[in-house]
């Protein structure tokens, strides 16, 4: 068979085709990513869990009215950028007090930290005792036929909470772990006509403060930034980043993000 020469294909129009596709993707690309803060809505409860009275000092109240004016912990605030400093103050005021100092401050209304949440210094024995207490409560509720299953689950979650704290303490490496009052929370109270812009600004400031607190501690304890830790936790790869997950859990325990958003009336 005679060897035939293969005709060359003209590739000159290849560039044209590629350009066409390129322009299509150029036009349809949106580079801005969707960025948001994730928040949980409280579950609707049928079984009322008896509410505990909350002390004034544990509430970091941020209020905004219909005219978009701010009131933070009872003080008017002109510039919303200052909210994060107030939140930092809320968390840090009594953080360094020892157990004895905490007790004396709680009894002394003229103490500068009197109106701020107090920290409990928890050690292994304290956790064990509390866990036993919580387990006893679960057993008691389990025996009682009048108690709803949902409530038993709630009690069980308390027991699990103490287990988590035990792990966090072991990871912390120090004998004592300061834990902010379990009641301490940030409360957002807006009015019906408050702008979403201001509402978002409040969330932004809370997020800034929490980041600041956790970042400072992360750098202090391990020399890594919180940004790195949270980015690795976001990958959901527990095996690869076990250390980061432990670090993250500990930071969450030290500086919990507890936010209550009050529905405007």
């Amino acid at each position: 068979m005679a060897k035939r020469e293969i005709p060359e294909i003209n590739a000159g129009s290849m560039a044209d085709i590629a350009f066409l596709l390129l322009i299509f993707f150029l036009v349809t690309t949106t580079m801005d990513r969707d960025k948001a803060w994730i928040r949980n809505i409280p579950k609707k409860i049928e079984v009322p869990i008896p509410p505990e009275p909350i002390e004034e000092r544990n509430i970091m109240a941020i209020k905004a009215n219909d005219a978009n004016q701010l009131m933070v912990r009872g003080e008017l605030m002109e510039n919303p950028d200052n909210i994060s400093e107030k939140i930092l103050e809320f968390y840090r005021m009594n953080e360094q007090l020892s157990q004895a100092e905490t007790e004396s401050a709680a009894a002394n209304p003229s103490h500068p930290g009197y109106n701020y949440p107090f920290y409990t210094r928890i050690d292994l024995n304290y956790i064990k005792a509390k866990k036993k207490e919580a387990e006893a409560a679960v057993d008691e509720a389990d025996m009682n036929p009048n108690v709803d299953a949902e409530f038993v689950r709630f009690l069980q979650s308390i027991v699990d909470g103490w287990d988590d704290k035990k792990e966090a303490l072991q990871f912390y490496g120090k004998p004592i772990l300061p834990e902010i009052s379990t009641q301490a929370h940030v409360r957002i109270e807006v009015k019906q006509k408050t702008n979403y812009g201001l509402f978002a600004k409040i969330h932004s400031e809370i997020e800034e403060a929490i980041f600041e607190l956790r970042d400072a501690t992360a750098k202090d304890l391990w020399g890594v930034s919180y940004k790195t830790i949270s980015a690795r936790v976001d990958t959901d790869d527990r095996e690869k980043y076990a250390t980061e997950f432990n670090q993250f859990d500990l930071l969450e325990l030290l500086y919990p993000r507890r936010i209550i958003e009050v529905t405007p009336k």
Partner: peptide
């Protein structure tokens, strides 16, 4: 947008147990 609408949305979601919202900015 007035904040009350955000809370209206939250209430609807709470009723069907879709308990995660994200506020986009």
């Amino acid at each position: 947008a007035p904040s009350v609408l955000i809370f209206d949305i939250r209430k609807e979601l709470q009723d069907i147990d879709a308990l995660k919202v994200a506020y986009a900015v």
